[in-house]
């Protein structure tokens, strides 16, 4: 019984640490959207370990400019993100630009895209990954 209580207490503590870690990352990441970009109102986050890849689909509407911010850990450049179109053509990866934490996208016609994120294992091997999407006013 004591052991169970200890595990539960540890788990609760760990949960708080996890949330605190993700919240700090999300706060820092939000700074990349600045005032010119309006958040899409969502926070995309995943716990990544080693070479795991988190992905989700999104729609970029034509005639808009979007900013994607990608963050993990305390330093810039820990998170790699890639954007594919619906035919799986790679449109962009920040890995080509030193894992820069944000990038802008001017969208001519509406595109259904998949966004993948993955830790740069040279910098970090586990942690909370946060992705934010903003659109220009």
């Amino acid at each position: 019984m004591k052991k169970l209580l200890f595990i539960l207490a540890f788990a609760l503590l760990a949960a708080n640490v996890a949330n605190a870690q993700c919240e700090t990352i999300a706060d820092d990441c939000a700074n990349y959207l600045e005032n010119a970009y309006i958040s899409d109102g969502q926070i995309y986050r995943a716990l990544l370990y080693n070479d795991q890849v988190a992905e989700f689909e999104t729609t970029f509407f034509g005639g808009n400019t979007y900013r994607i911010a990608a963050c993990s850990g305390e330093q810039e450049g820990n998170l790699i993100f890639r954007i594919y179109d619906e035919q799986k053509n790679l449109l962009f990866t920040n890995a080509d630009y030193s894992n820069v934490p944000y990038w802008d996208f001017v969208v001519e016609n509406t595109m259904h895209c998949t966004i993948e994120s993955q830790l740069d294992l040279n910098r970090q091997d586990s942690g909370c990954a946060v992705l934010l999407i903003g659109f220009k006013q």
Binding site: L12, A14, Q21, D51, Q52, V53, R123, D125
Partner: peptide, 27 residues
């Protein structure tokens, strides 16, 4: 490479909490 399509931090139990607690920089 292990792909975790649509897998999120939330709601995955004690084990995942342990993972999160352990997650940090490579130091």
């Amino acid at each position: 490479m292990k792909r975790i399509t649509y897998r999120l931090l939330a709601g995955t139990g004690i084990g995942l909490l342990l993972l999160t607690a352990c997650a940090d920089e490579k130091t």
